[in-house]
């Protein structure tokens, strides 16, 4: 038959391509992490000046990926947004964006590290220190932890009171030099600098003081560590942020 005769004359290019790709894949698994780091560093200046944002679509591991755990998240503007402080406090309060903007603002330039591996270098953050809001709320002696609520209706997170009082834990109003956008969890989100991204609740709607730490959404469903220190939890060895 024709096919059989051809088989002796011709080259098995198909098999070579498949094996070649498998080889590239294998080499990539072993060397990919350092290649990615170098590529990201090389392209960073281009990405930062790219007005189209198209280079952000390249999988370099150094751009934001947008995670949402529910269907649609309601949108809040500066006029409809409210942040409620409640629970074991002497002075419960509700803040508007204007209220929050009137408080002392803190700016930080820190990396944002996701537990799934991507890390965005040197993000500009600015907002009110959580410690400031806690002081104003006058936590009762039985309060030992802080629980965060999101107006996506599902996501929760939490910190111990001591972690929450750190100076690098912000109720962020600005991110990347402008008000926090909806996709980034705006108009107001948490930024817990020394911990993985899942600790930084997006679409923040409430802060409740509690007697004990309540494991958050991914800590219940995804087995993530409750103390999400970057480089010292979840079996990862990333460079700490702080």
């Amino acid at each position: 038959m024709d096919v059989e005769r051809d088989a002796e004359l011709d080259t098995p290019v198909g098999r070579r391509i498949v094996l070649g790709l498998a080889g590239i894949g294998l080499a990539g698994i072993v060397a990919g992490s350092s290649v990615q780091r170098r590529l990201a560093r090389l392209l960073a200046p281009i990405q930062q000046r790219d007005p189209t944002g198209l280079t952000g679509l390249l999988p370099l591991g150094n751009t934001f990926r947008y995670y949402s755990v529910t269907g649609s998240v309601p949108r809040h503007s500066a006029s409809t947004y409210r942040l409620e402080i409640s629970g074991l406090v002497g002075a419960p309060a509700t803040y508007t964006i204007a209220d929050l903007s009137a408080l002392p603002q803190t700016s930080l330039v820190r990396d944002f590290q996701c537990v799934t591996g991507w890390r965005v270098p040197e993000v500009h953050w600015s907002g009110v220190r959580l410690a400031e809001l806690l002081d104003r709320a006058a936590p009762s002696p039985s309060a030992a932890a802080v629980a965060f609520r999101s107006f996506d209706g599902t996501y929760t997170e939490s910190l111990t009171l001591a972690q929450a009082r750190r100076s690098d834990v912000l109720v962020a109003l600005q991110m990347l030099g402008k008000p926090v956008t909806h996709d980034h969890g705006g108009p107001v989100r948490m930024y817990v600098a020394p911990m993985y991204g899942y600790k930084s609740t997006k679409w923040l709607s409430g802060i409740e003081l509690t007697a004990a730490v309540e494991p958050g959404y991914w800590e219940q469903t995804g087995d993530y560590d409750v103390d999400g220190w970057i480089g010292a939890s979840n079996g990862r060895e990333d460079e700490p942020v702080g």
Binding site: G32, S33, G61
Partner: peptide, 22 residues
Amino acid sequence: YPDLVRLSWRTGASFVHDWFAL
């Protein structure tokens, strides 16, 4: 399966996965 290989290989795997998927 996060425990299969060491972390840097896993990062490498997601790098390869991303580019091949693209």
